[in-house]
Amino acid sequence: MSLTFRLDPAVTPELRDGVLRLWADVSNAGGAVGFVPPVAPEAIRPALVQHFVAMAEGRSRLLVGYGEDGEAAATAFFTFNTHRLMTHWVWLYTVMVHPRYQGLGYGRELLEEAERAARGFDGIQAIRLTCRGGLGLEHFYASCGYKEVGRVPGAIRVAPGDDRDDVIMLLTLA
């Protein structure tokens, strides 16, 4: 089985609730998507609303991978730069695959689909993302063609005494 991807799906209550569940499940399984366990969907809701507002304003787009059950199983949010000197690349945020699908190649599928989508965006020549150090995520992204282009030591405080590097990755499309 593989995921079925949809760029810019309609934001319905089902999608909203599905992405909230996905985000909480990924976070609670130790995923590095902006929260630390334990976290409830209600604590994540404001961050998701910010993404949806950016989408409504045309500053962001959503890619969703759906499992066989029709539930959101993977996501990535594209955010466009508004600075006139940086409009040629896009940010990729909240890249996540549900824990039940991890280890099956769906993360790689998600990044391949994100690359295909970005190639269709007018004037976009690169994708930039950041990841939390200490989990080996930069190795996964590197295996998908991203290059580490920067690192801010200790920029992410997961807990008191547990600071992680913020690793900056870039995929050139041109």
Rank of each mutant, 00 (worst) to 15 (best):
78 F>Y: 13
113 E>N: 08
63 L>C: 08
68 E>P: 06
89 W>K: 12
61 R>V: 10
43 A>Q: 15
95 V>C: 09
30 G>W: 03
106 Y>C: 14
78 F>P: 02
79 T>S: 13
34 G>K: 05
74 A>V: 01
53 V>T: 15
88 H>S: 11
67 G>C: 12
116 R>T: 06
86 M>W: 10
92 L>S: 11
89 W>Y: 15
42 E>V: 01
90 V>N: 06
75 T>Q: 02
59 R>K: 12
101 Y>G: 04
63 L>K: 04
16 R>T: 14
119 R>G: 09
96 M>Q: 10
30 G>P: 08
47 A>D: 09
78 F>I: 08
46 P>Y: 03
96 M>V: 11
105 G>H: 04
38 P>L: 03
85 L>S: 14
24 A>G: 05
16 R>S: 13
90 V>F: 00
91 W>Q: 13
109 E>M: 07
38 P>N: 09
93 Y>E: 14
96 M>G: 11
117 A>L: 00
88 H>W: 07
49 V>G: 05
70 G>W: 09
16 R>P: 00
109 E>L: 11
61 R>P: 08
49 V>F: 05
56 A>L: 03
101 Y>D: 00
26 V>M: 03
83 H>F: 10
66 Y>I: 13
92 L>F: 01
19 V>H: 00
65 G>A: 08
117 A>V: 13
89 W>E: 12
62 L>T: 08
39 V>H: 11
119 R>I: 12
112 E>M: 01
25 D>T: 13
24 A>C: 08
13 P>V: 07
51 H>I: 10
57 E>M: 12
41 P>A: 03
29 A>R: 07
112 E>T: 15
37 P>D: 11
77 F>P: 02
86 M>P: 00
63 L>P: 04
34 G>Q: 05
111 L>D: 10
80 F>H: 13
12 T>E: 03
61 R>N: 08
108 R>M: 07
99 P>H: 11
22 L>H: 05
87 T>W: 00
121 F>D: 04
40 A>G: 10
22 L>V: 02
41 P>D: 05
56 A>E: 15
77 F>T: 15
20 L>P: 10
68 E>T: 07
93 Y>C: 06
39 V>A: 15
115 E>D: 07
73 A>L: 03
22 L>S: 09
35 F>G: 01
111 L>M: 15
94 T>A: 15
102 Q>C: 11
64 V>C: 12
46 P>A: 06
42 E>T: 04
12 T>F: 01
52 F>K: 06
67 G>P: 07
89 W>H: 14
31 G>Q: 14
41 P>G: 07
74 A>D: 08
31 G>K: 10
80 F>I: 06
95 V>P: 10
50 Q>M: 10
49 V>H: 11
107 G>Y: 06
90 V>I: 14
97 V>E: 02
74 A>H: 03
118 A>F: 09
20 L>E: 03
31 G>S: 09
27 S>P: 01
105 G>F: 01
64 V>H: 03
104 L>T: 10
34 G>E: 08
103 G>P: 09
115 E>K: 14
91 W>G: 10
111 L>Y: 06
105 G>M: 04
110 L>I: 02
44 I>Q: 07
16 R>H: 08
80 F>M: 14
71 E>I: 02
77 F>S: 10
95 V>T: 11
57 E>H: 08
18 G>R: 09
73 A>I: 03
95 V>D: 06
40 A>P: 00
43 A>N: 04
68 E>Y: 00
110 L>P: 07
86 M>D: 13
91 W>P: 01
29 A>E: 01
50 Q>E: 14
81 N>W: 01
